[in-house]
């Protein structure tokens, strides 16, 4: 078990390092010079070369790329990601400032998305009416087929501007969370629901269910007891994947609802080639991703007796 744990943690660390490195490479592949982006574009041709050099020097952009990389990596190991090129503020402070707001939004949306997904999957699996099942099974694809910004804007038109139930922008307590959470949850619920519907159905057909069926269990009991537990495994996998969707979705949700947050900040940082800030965010994202997966990996064997069996034998298959 200890070896299993060490393996997982080492893997998580690798992911974080690789993400850091890959981002650095990607940003340097870009056909743009971060120094250019510090000036008003209309004035760009007027900026003298001395001014450019001075700007490049104060951010260390004139050093050899490898040195820049090593320097940043060294500092990053101590938790120091430098200062944002755009605002001059320390990256850590900048991120910590906006993190809670995104965290609340994302976890609310994830929770709601899981509720929706499980509801859809349960109804689709347990109903006996074909048309209900067809309708419910169409929901996930319906959910992902409307652009997030459009559903957000339309919801605002109705619930904020016409009915006045919720504030339209900013972050003013629980009430201003309702619309953004729904907006973000809808597209996120789609893939999860789809996967659940599929695996619930698969589980329903598999041998042990048939056995329970033969033993005289009712449909509802079967769904809850057997199918639910076994089909949750891939759902956990996709929850990890969903993490990325949440970040991408939060960029748009935070923009539409004018909220402070990691998503919007990341977009601005990428746009302005704010290398230190982008790296801070990527490391954060990679680390959170690694931790979520670590947890999933640790829960996996507990949920699935088959994997638990292989684990005790010591097979690396579950890695």
């Amino acid at each position: 078990m200890l070896r299993y744990l060490a393996l997982k943690v080492g893997r998580a660390l690798f992911v974080v390092w690789a993400a850091f490195t890959l981002t650095f490479v990607l940003l340097f592949v870009l056909p743009a010079n971060p120094v250019d982006l510090l000036f008003d574009p209309a004035e760009l041709n007027t900026v003298t070369s001395e001014v450019r050099e001075q700007a490049a020097e104060s951010y260390g952009f004139n050093k050899p790329v490898l040195l820049q990389y090593l320097g940043r990596l060294g500092h990053a190991l101590t938790g120091d990601f430098g200062n944002s090129v755009q605002s001059g503020r320390s990256v850590t402070a900048t991120i910590l400032d906006v993190l809670p707001s995104t965290f609340v939004l994302a976890s609310g949306a994830l929770l709601l998305a899981l509720l929706i997904a499980f509801a859809i999957a349960l109804i689709a699996t347990s109903t006996r009416r074909a048309w209900v099942r067809n309708l419910v099974e169409a929901l996930p694809s319906g959910a992902v087929s409307v652009p997030v910004f459009l559903s957000g804007i339309l919801m605002l038109q109705v619930f904020s501007f016409q009915l006045g139930w919720f504030p339209a922008f900013g972050d003013r307590g629980a009430k201003s969370l309702v619309l953004p959470v729904i907006t973000l949850a809808i597209p996120v619920s789609g893939p999860i629901a789809q996967l659940l519907v599929r695996s619930f159905a698969t589980e329903f057909r598999s041998g042990y269910v048939t056995t329970s069926w033969a033993k005289g269990a009712t449909r509802g009991v079967i769904v809850v007891r057997d199918v639910f537990r076994n089909a949750s495994l891939p759902a956990l996998t996709i929850a990890g994947i969903t993490f990325g969707n949440l970040i991408a979705g939060s960029v748009i949700t935070e923009t539409v609802f004018a909220r402070q947050g990691i998503g919007r900040m990341t977009q601005a940082a990428i746009n302005t080639l704010d290398v230190p800030l982008v790296q801070g965010v990527v490391v954060l994202a990679a680390a959170s991703f690694a931790v979520i997966n670590l947890i999933v990996d640790l829960i996996y064997p507990l949920l699935d007796p088959r994997l638990r069996a292989t684990l005790t034998v010591g097979s690396p298959r579950a890695a």
Binding site: F14, L22, G244, I247, V282
Partner: peptide, 15 residues
């Protein structure tokens, strides 16, 4: 695959 999953897809797409 993990590394690619860990980097927000939006960043990848924009780049």
């Amino acid at each position: 695959v993990d590394v690619f999953l860990a980097i927000p897809s939006l960043l990848l797409a924009m780049v």
